[in-house]
Simulated assay, not measured.
Amino acid sequence: MSAIRFDQVRLQFPGTPQPAVNGVTCDIEAGQLVVILGPSGCGKTTVLKMVNRLYEPTSGAIYLDGVNIRQMKVTKLRQQIGYVIQQSGLFPHKTVAENIAVVPKLLGWSRPKYQSRVDELLQLVELPPQVYRNRYPAQLSGGQQQRVGVARALAGDPKFMLMDEPFGAIDAITRQSLQDEILRIQRKVHKTILFVSHDVEEALRLGDKIMILQKGKILQFDTPLNILTSPANDFVRELMGADDLFRQLSLRRVEAAMQRVSSDYPHQGERAIAPHENLRQALSLLLQTGSQRLSVMDEGKVIGVLTLETIQKAARI
């Protein structure tokens, strides 16, 4: 059973000639991070806001764990869903700890329980509690505010997360750092996440799958690699830069292209790369160093080698 299911979901706002969302149907599996991508006005945020019933669809249905959300009380529904927006949305008159504790308090948690949860989440987003729990939002950088926003969304331990361009107003360097944090946190907590973005690189970096919308319709819903290698149409090809070989290499892992070697392989003096790195990083390292090959190292052991030839072979697949 899918964690989130859209079944012919349509939404047309009063007085508008065209529907904002038009027949969206897809299944999202538990623990997946799905990026909703497309041009401005394509319906990305509208799709997101229907999941927590900020908007009600004109027709069709949305299911969470098999239950039609129209059959759920709105308060009960939203207690299952963490929500992160672009400007963090923190209460300026509350401390960091008080902001994070809002939902646990509403859920009736005891003070020791929610205080412990605050500290746990601040550690998770790498903001030491002893330093940050008593600060106010105005005393934080934009990136720190977004980290607190993520912690607050996770506070009630929701099964689902909705993230509406959460890093859209952040500078490029901080944005990449926050993307790293989301990936690191997701590896630990395995939430089902819908993540709205207008940034193709962000979508490719974060998404287990990408939903590409145009004029309220899904053009393609697939893994980043499948979308790049088999775009549904010219619009998707152009939007994703699907002809960019380097972009494709960034989605292929070293371990998938390396030649495996025995444990006694002589690797003295060769540059090393980890199996979970991508082929774009491997190619860059080969070109920067002028090396003929790279040793693929896992936990201090050589498990494979990578050359320009093996990278070229992977690029042609």
Rank of each mutant, 00 (worst) to 15 (best):
Q248R: 15
Q268V: 08
Q220R: 09
F246G: 02
L245M: 15
L154R: 08
T223Y: 10
L162C: 14
F167T: 10
S262I: 10
S197C: 04
E165W: 06
H190K: 15
D171T: 08
L162F: 13
F246E: 15
Q186F: 07
S262N: 10
L245P: 01
E255I: 15
L251S: 01
I185N: 05
L283C: 00
Q268M: 06
E181H: 03
L287K: 14
K191Q: 04
K209T: 10
A172N: 11
E201T: 10
R175V: 13
I185Y: 06
R205Y: 12
I210K: 03
L183F: 09
L285H: 02
A232E: 10
D199Q: 12
P166E: 00
S262V: 03
H198D: 11
M258E: 13
L204N: 00
F195A: 15
I193F: 01
K215M: 11
D243N: 14
Y265K: 12
A172E: 13
D234T: 06
R252F: 10
I218F: 06
V196Y: 05
S197E: 11
A272N: 15
R147H: 01
L287R: 15
T223K: 06
D208C: 07
K209M: 04
K188V: 13
G156K: 08
D164G: 00
A256W: 15
L204F: 04
L283D: 03
Q268H: 06
S284E: 14
R184I: 04
F221V: 13
H198T: 12
I212R: 09
E238L: 10
R147K: 14
I170Y: 01
G241M: 07
F235Y: 14
V254H: 12
H190W: 00
D264Q: 04
L249S: 00
I170T: 10
G168E: 08
K191P: 00
M211N: 01
Q288V: 14
M240F: 11
I218K: 03
F235G: 02
L283N: 00
T229Y: 15
D157C: 08
E255K: 14
I273P: 14
G207C: 03
D180K: 12
T229C: 13
N226E: 12
S263C: 04
Q268P: 00
L219V: 15
L194Q: 05
G156P: 01
P166M: 01
H276S: 15
V200G: 02
S284L: 12
A172H: 09
L225P: 06
I218H: 14
T223S: 14
V236E: 09
A257H: 08
L194P: 00
I273G: 10
L228I: 09
V200R: 05
R205H: 07
L283P: 00
M211W: 05
R237I: 04
I218G: 01
R184D: 05
D157Q: 15
P275Y: 00
R260L: 14
Q220T: 01
F167I: 14
P275R: 10
F167Q: 08
E201C: 04
E255C: 15
L206S: 01
S284H: 14
I173T: 12
I170W: 06
D199W: 06
T192F: 02
V189T: 11
P158I: 11
N226Y: 06
R253I: 09
P158H: 02
